[in-house]
Amino acid sequence: MRRVVVFGTTGSGKSWLAERLADRTGLRVVELDALFWGRNWQPALPDLFRHRVECETREDGWIVVGNYGQVRDLVWRPADTLVWLDLPLPVVMGRLLRRTVKRAVTREELWGTGNRESLANAFLSRNSILLYALKTHRLNRERFARECEALAGEKRIVRLCSRRDVERFALSPLP
């Protein structure tokens, strides 16, 4: 396990799991959000985003965190292990709500960009991450199922469907 992708719907615990795996393996974590988002929540231009991802995954030994379709070919193709956090919507929404409120209250800066979450944006905006999670959870599950099925036999695919599965995997002996 030298090139790992941790993916799942927003709020599923991707970064948390990636950090645990990095602690155990010594692999470095590559947060796609950090490569995508600029100041004032401005997305990177597609070519720049792809270039950043290519640079970060050029060397062997990484754990990529994220779901960005526009760079999936760059991270899934060389990956040897895909870890899918496929948690139930109530679990995801509970985690996401706690994380969002905590970040908004503490004014935590995200990815060194100066970006911060706010309660107004979380609860009163069309750009709400909570609304986004509600709208994309089922669609992500269907899409990820198709994509993983197409890669079965080519990659090690680990599908984690409960909190207990995630905790066991985070602590289990690694191949």
Rank of each mutant, 00 (worst) to 15 (best):
F49M: 02
R159K: 14
K14L: 05
A133P: 11
G114H: 04
R77H: 11
I63S: 01
N127S: 14
A145F: 15
D23W: 03
S125G: 10
R20A: 15
D80V: 01
E59L: 11
D86H: 13
R107E: 13
T57D: 11
L82C: 04
R2N: 14
D47M: 09
R143K: 15
N67D: 04
G61H: 07
F144C: 04
T100E: 01
E149L: 10
R116D: 09
R24F: 05
R28W: 14
L87K: 13
R159A: 03
W62H: 01
T9Y: 03
S118Q: 08
F169E: 01
H51R: 13
W62N: 00
V158A: 13
V105I: 09
P46G: 06
I157E: 04
A120V: 11
R126K: 15
R28Y: 14
W111F: 13
W84K: 13
F144D: 00
L48P: 00
R3Y: 07
H51G: 03
G26I: 06
A120W: 15
L97H: 05
T25L: 15
T106Y: 08
W76V: 01
D73S: 11
L32D: 13
R28V: 09
W111Y: 15
G112K: 03
L97A: 10
R3P: 07
V75G: 08
H137T: 11
L82N: 03
N127M: 08
C55V: 06
A34R: 02
W62Q: 00
L27P: 09
V4T: 09
K14S: 04
L160V: 00
L89G: 10
Y68T: 02
G153H: 12
G11W: 05
G66M: 00
R163H: 11
P90G: 02
E56H: 07
L174C: 12
L110Q: 10
L124Y: 08
S12W: 10
L21I: 07
E108S: 10
E108A: 10
A170L: 04
R98I: 08
K155M: 05
V92Q: 01
G153I: 05
R143T: 05
R126P: 12
D80L: 05
D23V: 02
T10I: 12
A22H: 02
L110F: 05
G66Q: 00
A104I: 00
T113F: 01
A145T: 09
T9H: 07
T57G: 11
E31P: 14
V65N: 01
N127V: 00
V92N: 01
A18P: 08
R159Y: 01
E31H: 15
V101I: 12
R58L: 12
G69F: 05
D47V: 04
P173F: 06
W16A: 05
Y132I: 08
M93D: 01
E59S: 12
R163L: 13
E56M: 02
A145P: 02
E142P: 11
V29K: 01
R164W: 07
G38H: 13
G153R: 14
L74Y: 10
N67Q: 03
H137F: 10
L139Q: 14
K14F: 09
F144P: 02
L45H: 12
V75N: 07
V166H: 09
W37V: 07
L96F: 02
L174W: 01
L160F: 03
R52D: 01
L32Y: 09
V71Y: 10
E31G: 12
V71L: 07
